[in-house]
Amino acid sequence: MPMYGDLGNKLVQHAKRTQNLAHLPPYQTELVRGVTREVRDLDKDVASLLEPFQGSFDPSADQATACTLLVNHLSMRRNKRCLLAYHRTRTDKLAELVWSGSDVLDLAGHQAGGANGAPAADAGASSSLSPQEEDYFRQYGDLLAAYKGQWTDIDLTGSLEPPRDLFIDVRVLKDAGEIQTEYGAINLTKNSQFYVRQGDVERLIAQGYLQKLG
């Protein structure tokens, strides 16, 4: 028998699975909507239960109603906790993705094309983020960039692995244009190989433009 809180539980099970994944699974729009609808229904129930009392409800005089109210209240509180925990799990993951430099919005970018057609179905297929999450991701990225900007000679998101060699061989997988290094400019065209300072190209490797050799 479906009960209040069951939908919320499903949402938290999604969150549990998300914790063990490297990527972010699709946002559960329907479930979230279901849970919030449940809260609204419960709130309506509470209002109509209390209505005849005109603000002077005495719990000890009407225990059955008091108990019903308590159950409704607890169900709403439970749903709130499930909703918050689900979203928090995802925002934590998003923050992690921003720090690791992955470009989630690259994926989301394709969504723009389907926006005028059938948005709901299209958006679900191409982006696993809700619009609010995309905003969060973008703004968190901006914040991080501003924070990092305070230190010019240290890269806060750089690799924590101490390098074996300062210089490495890389192969260019995608055209990445010209980059500036201490030793002058290098033009990164597809399929060319370079011997460069690791610190200069770390970001490009992380973004998949370059491949480290050897």
């Binding site: 938290v12 159950v71 925990a85």
Partner: peptide, 26 residues
């Protein structure tokens, strides 16, 4: 913590309860 997923899932475990009063709406 409030946001702890496992703690929330633990709270969903069921235990046998016996109601002590009549409650029409439940």
């Amino acid at each position: 913590s409030y946001y702890d997923i496992d703690s929330i899932l633990t709270d969903a475990e069921k235990i046998p309860c016996t109601f002590q009063i009549d409650i029409p709406d439940l």
